[in-house]
Design a protein around this nucleic acid. Structure first.
Lengths: 184, 184
DNA sequence: TTGGCTATCTATAAGGA
DNA sequence: TTCCTTATAGATAGCCA
């Protein structure tokens, strides 16, 4: 695909590398867009380079809420909830959190939704594994704060905005860290 | 790039569509891999199709923890925390949460880390905006649960695993929903 | 970092297994 | 869904701006 075939290994010359990065990033995005349109496929593409700004693309600009709807075969109850959430996503714009995991055991998202005396739980436990309410609120305040300011992010390509992404992650991780992982 | 030029619009014939999806997905991943290697670039690619299994790729297999390290120019304090977190990521495997946002106002992740009387805060407020502790714990329990079971997700390509991704998101969103967004 | 400009390499459309 | 083949459209290497 060029005057010469090139070897598949890291380009050391910085000038050359950033030039190729620029071109290939463009090409990759184009491919992703084509595929999204042709195959009616949802694609999320996140590209970082050591030297340039990070790029995030949602080629087909399908609302991410709809992506969620496709993700699993779900019960009627869940489906209703999903649509409800989609509505909210659509109306208010939203924070989109992609959580990826490899193993998952015995998890049922609808099981623990009944709790009226959460405060007692915390006051009863005093070891490191108990979340302090302040920490919990901090996380949730952050989520809601983001939620309020989020609007249909079709394309984000400046560092400042992606920094937030990290901040949020770090915040959650800090929280988790404090909660202490049992298998430590 | 074929015997004939094709029009850029959704392919209606399902058979043809899935065939092209398969080919293009492969091609897109190859491109991403090449770029990751050549340009020393970090890439995250998430592809869904209506008819086939969703795919997640980390072409260059660079630990996502390192991606985070690159994401922003950060203070010394933050940098220390980051490395600390990276260590954890590396040691325990981890949940990776990408939170993407467009607008962000007056947020400083280090500002609200001091709180010793969070419980009071909650007990003082009784309106819809107050998070119930049970809900907060539910979210965090989930996070830690995922955390425990997560191991170096180089490639995830089956639906079951990605379903969790959705579950987690839905769980967070449910929580947020209950918290009530001020601009409702 | 992006945008030409070719020559050349590569992905892929079509069609069938 | 993936794999094969061949002809062709499309991406990009190298070089210059």
């Amino acid at each position: 695909m060029g005057r010469k075939k090139i070897e598949l290994k890291k380009i050391e010359c910085p000038k050359e590398k950033s030039s190729k990065y620029s071109k290939r990033k463009k090409g990759l995005l184009k491919k992703a867009e084509e595929m999204a349109v042709l195959c009616d496929s949802d694609i999320i593409l996140l590209v970082f380079s050591p030297t340039s700004k990070p790029n995030l693309f949602y080629p087909h600009s399908r609302p991410l809420g709809r992506i969620l709807e496709r993700l699993s075969n779900m019960s009627e109850y869940e489906r209703e909830e999903r649509f409800d959430l989609s509505e909210i996503l659509h109306k208010k714009g939203l924070i989109y959190t992609l959580t990826l995991m490899k193993l998952f055991k015995n998890k049922n998202p609808n099981e623990n939704h009944n709790h009226s005396s959460g405060r007692d739980e915390v006051q009863l436990q005093e070891d490191d594994k108990v979340i302090e309410l302040g920490e919990a609120r901090e996380l949730l305040d952050e989520n809601t704060s983001i939620l309020r300011n989020w609007q249909d992010p079709h394309r984000v390509d400046d560092l400042a905005r992606l920094t937030i992404m990290e901040d949020h992650l770090v915040s959650i991780l800090s929280l988790i860290k404090k909660v202490q992982i049992e298998q430590g």
